[in-house]
């Protein structure tokens, strides 16, 4: 055995203090980053916010020449594209999660699960270039004319599908976003479904319920918080997604009643215009858009995390 030198314990204690404070500093840094993001955005956005006041979020005008900026069109685009994405991705993600947990042959479970997760790893710029060169022409030629022909004449929702089929626009951006958030929603829901105790499901089957009845009456109620959490997490992604949307949105600062028309979103406006923005008010307005996006996504993601955490605690308590 090694002989312990006289100063050994003291030295160890110093090392311990150093290591401990290094880890502590790193952990605090995470808090500082979030604080720094909020503070720097607020500072950058201040000139625009103080100049336009509350009307910044209620006006549609966006005119760099006359230095008039309002965020309504990007906010509208962000919300509507995300809503379209969720309308498409939530049922599809639910279906995939269901397939993976209840129907899939065990041999295929892993490969399909990995394939879905790989879709999540593809960077958003790839979805953008694919959306622009492959998806948009397909939608323009085959899907949008059909939408205009059928739904375009329907009462109430008809005006959503009027106008020429541009290919790029709000609808296309929504579809690309749907494909992008699909793996996140599917993977979260699958994990949540996996936490349902087999005993509960077996009891359902024992009573003679069909697979669908077990899913709808046992699995879904049991994992409600997790499902909502997964959906919100997907929504958070959709709201802040930048590159994929920038390619296919058309970058038009106006609110059109038709979903087929070009529009803009908060993130695509920043990506498109930031480096070309001249004048302090223009730059500051774009940063103010960033601040809005930060507030919206922060709220959505925080709510999602809170719900997923509640579920985790409950599962932890049940075991």
């Amino acid at each position: 055995m090694a002989i312990i030198e006289p100063g050994h314990a003291a030295k160890q204690l110093i090392y311990e203090r150093i290591f401990r404070s290094a880890t502590f500093t790193a952990a605090i840094l995470v808090l500082l980053i979030l604080g720094g993001v909020a503070a720097s955005l607020l500072r950058g956005a201040w000139p625009a916010l103080s100049h336009f006041g509350f009307s910044f979020v209620t006006r549609e005008i966006w005119n760099p020449v006359t230095d008039q900026f309002g965020a309504l069109a990007p906010i509208y685009g962000t919300v509507v594209t995300s809503l379209i994405a969720m309308l498409l991705a939530v049922p599809a993600g639910f279906g995939i999660a269901l397939f993976l947990t209840e129907l899939c042959p065990p041999l295929l479970k892993r490969p399909i699960g990995v394939a879905v997760e790989l879709l999540a790893a593809v960077p958003s710029i790839i979805f953008g270039i694919w959306g622009l060169f492959v998806l948009a022409p397909v939608l323009q030629r085959h899907v949008q004319p059909w939408l205009i022909g059928s739904l375009g004449n329907a009462p109430a929702i008809g005006r959503l599908f009027k106008g020429p089929p541009y290919g790029i626009g709000i609808l296309t951006a929504g579809v690309v976003l749907a494909i992008m958030v699909l793996p996140f929603i599917a993977a979260t829901m699958r994990d949540v479904f996996d936490t349902v105790p087999p005993m509960l499901k077996e009891s359902g089957y024992g009573l003679g319920a069909t697979t669908w009845e077990v899913i709808w009456n046992v699995v879904v109620p049991h994992s409600r918080a997790g499902i909502v959490g997964g959906v919100m997490l997907g929504l958070g992604r959709a709201l802040g997604e930048t590159m994929a949307v920038t390619f296919v949105i058309g970058n038009a600062h106006r609110i059109s009643s038709s979903l087929l028309a070009p529009g803009t979103t908060i993130s695509s406006a920043i990506a498109n215009e930031f480096t070309e923005a001249v004048g302090d008010l223009y730059t500051s307005s774009l940063i103010a858009l960033g601040l809005l996006l930060f507030l919206i996504t922060f709220t959505v993601i925080a709510l999602a995390q809170a719900m997923l955490r509640r579920l985790e605690r409950r599962v932890g308590a049940a075991v």
Partner: peptide, 21 residues
């Protein structure tokens, strides 16, 4: 909690933050 928020925060926000700082 904050880390999980940062994990799914929009990356363009991080770009703006570094631009400002």
């Amino acid at each position: 909690f904050i880390n999980d928020v940062l994990l799914s925060a929009p990356s363009i926000i991080v770009g703006l933050f570094v631009y400002e700082v």
